[in-house]
């Protein structure tokens, strides 16, 4: 299980599914997960991915997505889990 990963949260489930589709079409690796508990925001579905896929996945987002999508770094290396909100 990855202890350090990125997570995109969305303002709606429709939007999460839409971005996942874009990601699949671009053959990028990321998985749909329930929004981690450390992040108390937005809709129930999120997109999880690792550092190597970050540029590709962020590249799929458009300027218009800025208000609808939030990027987090989830850190579970310590017993207390942390989520850091990042700019993208």
């Amino acid at each position: 299980m990855e202890k350090l990963f990125y997570c995109l949260t969305f303002d709606s489930t429709h939007y999460a599914i839409k971005i996942e589709k874009r990601m699949k079409d671009a053959e990028l690796k990321g998985v749909i997960i329930p929004t981690p508990r450390e992040v108390s925001a937005s809709c129930g579905l999120s997109l999880k991915f690792l550092e190597e896929d970050k540029p590709g996945i962020i590249g799929l987002l458009e300027e218009a997505d800025r208000e609808r999508v939030t990027l987090y770094l989830i850190d579970r290396r310590e017993s207390t889990y942390q989520a850091e909100k990042l700019e993208w």
Partner: peptide, 17 residues
Amino acid sequence: DELGDALMKGYFYTLTE
């Protein structure tokens, strides 16, 4: 169906956790 697919992925991911 689209939602059902997404929920299924979320379900199995959560099982692994």
